[in-house]
Design a protein around this nucleic acid. Structure first.
Lengths: 108, 108
DNA sequence: CACACTCATCGCAATATTGCGATAAATATT
DNA sequence: AATATTTATCGCAATATTGCGATGAGTGTG
């Protein structure tokens, strides 16, 4: 079958998994790190920065935009992308609270 | 072609993506949350807890064990799983440091 | 030893992801 | 208007993931 049974899990669990999936590719990690580092916004520089084809970069940008991690604004003929600060912070918080303290003494 | 070009990215980026991929499924999120909550270690309870087949659960446990997030110890006929505290903490730190502060004023 | 029980692995089918060439859409430039 | 530039989308091929029935390996019980 090969389709994830989302109905078995809570909305929170499905959301958490979707968030992780957005980060589950080195190209998207690299894009986000680049955007964080450059701060000011970029567009097709990413195609040169990473070694992937333009169509591939565009695809990854689309996915990142879909989960709200980045936003793009049209600037003439090019598109300027940057981190969406609000969602970014939300990710930070949710991941941080996911990895709560664990009592290792009660382990097997 | 459909194979990730890992050679284009740094080890750090590939590792970060691999970490995210381990979390990129609601069943694995649910397993981890359950292990955190129950604290003491579990085994086939997960098959009942989630609604997935035993083979499927075993597969997900294998993936979580492969990235070091959980550890399993044989206890007679059953296997007891629990969170691997060290890796768990490492994940918390790495995700936390990934989501660094962003200067939203310098956005597009 | 025979049997039950728990878990891991194999093998398959269904679906999802990745990468990219080709092409389209939109805007600048001349 | 013609052309160049930039980005998005389509369609395909290759690969990866998901889910599970069937089977096997290992351990405990009678």
């Amino acid at each position: 079958m090969g389709l994830t049974k989302t109905e078995l899990f809570t909305d929170s669990q499905n959301k958490m998994a979707a968030m992780a999936k957005a980060l589950a590719h080195p190209a998207r990690i690299a894009i986000l790190q680049y955007l964080v580092r450059i701060n000011a916004c970029i567009c097709g520089d990413l195609v040169e920065e990473l070694g992937l084809a333009q169509a591939t970069i565009s695809q990854h940008l689309k996915e990142l935009k879909a989960v709200g991690l980045i936003q793009g604004s049209i600037d003439g003929t090019s598109v300027c992308y940057c981190i969406h600060a609000t969602t970014w912070l939300q990710y930070k918080i949710l991941f941080s609270s996911f990895f709560t303290e664990v009592d290792s003494t009660k382990c097997c």
